[in-house]
């Protein structure tokens, strides 16, 4: 079976006025269909850049990257993925349902199809009843759920999420994490999830990619043996803590928290 994401010796160097910045160096990674992969690491480790490279928002400068066996550009043009940004990025002049309709309008779905998909995805993220509200009338957590619904609306099999819950408080984040797991289970999608929270990464993932900065590289890939059914209190079990410890070790091994001299 063709992997959903396959990166070989992937590198990306930004040219800036202060010289070259190596954002990604020699990244090798395969993501299979149905995986929930978390990317964890400190700021500047390239986790967001890697996600943006998958999405064809950045171009790699070396190595190869294939999405469903295609180039990232072709995959983007085939609408292979939905992208959830750090901020909800809802358009303030559109109601919630119209925001979710945005990709559907662009992709040329009929009004009936739009209505049906809006209803289905709003149910999926538990936002039914808020169709006619404007973004500012919703809480931050609800806005981010709306942006997830928007990414799900056109039924891409791959969901790319860049620290989607980073700006939310702990309580809302826990709630959305468990909802996201249920959603993943129901939709059978492949999810790439960028985070800098160890508990979040361990709780959600089937595979955890630990990254370190300067240059951005992968230091460890951890397969999780936690069961698919994960209540929130799984975070107190020894298995959970063992994986978390290994993630922490991986981050430390990358010297990621040390200051550069």
């Amino acid at each position: 079976m063709i992997p959903v994401v396959s990166a070989q010796n992937l590198g990306l160097t930004f040219s800036t006025n202060d010289g070259d910045v190596v954002a990604l160096s020699d990244v090798n990674l395969t993501i299979e269909k149905g995986d929930f992969v978390s990317f964890i690491g400190p700021s500047g480790c390239g986790k967001t850049t890697f996600l943006r490279t998958i999405a064809d928002l950045e171009q790699p400068t070396s190595g190869t990257l294939r999405i469903n066996g295609q180039t990232p550009e072709d995959a983007r043009k085939n609408r292979a993925y939905g992208y959830v940004f750090q901020a909800p990025a809802l358009y303030p002049w559109r109601t919630i349902e119209k925001n979710i309709a945005l990709p559907l309008e662009i992709m040329g779905h009929s009004p009936q199809q739009q209505a049906e998909r809006i209803k289905r995805t709003m149910d999926l993220v538990n936002l039914s009843g808020f169709e006619k509200k404007y973004p500012w009338q919703l809480s931050g957590g609800m806005q981010q759920r709306a942006s997830i619904a928007r990414a799900l609306a056109f039924d891409a099999d791959l969901l790319l999420m860049d620290e989607p819950f980073g700006a939310l408080d702990e309580i809302v984040r826990d709630h959305l994490n468990s909802e996201l797991l249920k959603l993943w289970d129901r939709t059978q999608k492949t999810i790439c999830f960028v985070t800098h929270s160890i508990p979040e990464a361990v709780y959600l993932s089937t595979k955890i990619v630990v990254m370190s900065p300067r240059p951005g590289r992968v230091t460890d890939i951890i397969e999780s043996n936690l069961p698919k059914e994960r209540p929130l209190d799984i975070r107190e079990t020894p298995e959970f803590l063992a994986i978390a410890a290994r993630v922490r070790d991986g981050l430390r091994a990358g010297h990621s928290y040390e200051e550069v001299v």
């Binding site: 064809d56 928002l57 983007r76 993925y81 992208y83 990025a89 358009y91 990709p103 662009i106």
Partner: peptide, 17 residues
């Protein structure tokens, strides 16, 4: 904002859209 434009790119929206 940049992410609002990025969003359009992920949808492969044309300049008109």
């Amino acid at each position: 904002e940049a992410i609002q434009l990025d969003l359009m790119r992920t949808y492969d929206a044309n300049p008109w859209q």
